[in-house]
C-alpha cells in the first residue's frame, strides 16, 4: 500500500520553502506547480471514494471516474486565479501549464513508487506521455482563456465545453494505455503527437500570444 500523502509531504517540502524565498512570476510558478500536485492528491482520494461508493473495479475507476475527477479538480487552481485575481491571459495560460506539470509529476512519482523503477524505457515513455497528456489538456483550457474570454456567457459556456473535451480526451488516453501491445503504444503516442500538432499549427499564434 502506498501512503501518497507521505510522498506528497516529502515532495512539496522543498517547494514550500522556496515559495517565500522567491518573488513575482517565479513564485507564482512554484505555487501553481504545488497546486497541481495537491490537485493530484485530492483527485486520488476523491476517485477512490467515488469508486468505492459506486462499487467500481480498479479498471472502471481509471477509465470512467478518474478522468472526470482529475480534470475538474485540476481546473480549480486556475479557475480560482482567473476569477479572484483577474490576471492577463498570458499569466493565466502559464499557470494552467504549471498546474498540469505539477499534476503529472506527482502522478508519475506515485506510479514509480507503486510499479518499481527498474524499466527505464517504460518509465520514460510513460513519463513523456502522461506529461504530454496533461499539458494538452491544459492547452485546451488555454484556448478557452484566449479565444472565449470576451463575454461572460461565452466564457462560462466555452469553459464548460472545453472541460468536457479534456475529460473525454483523458478518458480515451486511459482506455488506450490500459490495453496491451500496439494499442497501448498508440495510447502513449497520442498525447505526444497531439501536443506536437497543436504546437506546430499554432506556433505563429503562440508567438503572438507570448509576445515572442
Amino acid at each position: 500500500m502506498n501512503y501518497i500523502e507521505n510522498i506528497f509531504v516529502c515532495l512539496v517540502a522543498p517547494l514550500l520553502v522556496a515559495v517565500p524565498c522567491s518573488r513575482g512570476r517565479g513564485r507564482r510558478m512554484i505555487i501553481f506547480f504545488l497546486s497541481g500536485m495537491l490537485a493530484c492528491l485530492l483527485s486520488s482520494y476523491i476517485s477512490t471514494f467515488l469508486a468505492a461508493v459506486r462499487g467500481a473495479d480498479i479498471f472502471s475507476a481509471s477509465v470512467e471516474i478518474a478522468p472526470f475527477v482529475e480534470e475538474v479538480i485540476k481546473l480549480f487552481p486556475v479557475a480560482f486565479f482567473l476569477l479572484v485575481f483577474e490576471p492577463k491571459a498570458k499569466e493565466a495560460a502559464d499557470n494552467a501549464i504549471m498546474t498540469a506539470v505539477g499534476f503529472a509529476t506527482f502522478e508519475n512519482v506515485c506510479f514509480m513508487v507503486e510499479n518499481s523503477t527498474g524499466d527505464i524505457l517504460h518509465l520514460a515513455i510513460r513519463g513523456f506521455s502522461t506529461g504530454a497528456m496533461h499539458v494538452v489538456c491544459a492547452l485546451f483550457i488555454i484556448v478557452a482563456i484566449y479565444k472565449l474570454w470576451d463575454t461572460d456567457w461565452l466564457r462560462a459556456t466555452g469553459f464548460l465545453a472545453l472541460i468536457a473535451v479534456t475529460i473525454t480526451y483523458h478518458g480515451i488516453y486511459n482506455i488506450l494505455v490500459s490495453q496491451k501491445g500496439i494499442v497501448a503504444a498508440v495510447g502513449y503516442a497520442v498525447p505526444v503527437i497531439t501536443a506536437a500538432i497543436v504546437l506546430a499549427v499554432f506556433k505563429k499564434r503562440n508567438n503572438q500570444i507570448y509576445g515572442n
Binding site: A56, I65, L160
Partner: peptide, 11 residues
C-alpha cells in the same frame, strides 16, 4: 459508472 461521452456530446 460515468457519462464521459455524454459530456462530449453536450459540449
Amino acid at each position: 459508472y460515468s457519462h464521459i461521452p455524454y459530456y462530449s456530446w453536450y459540449a
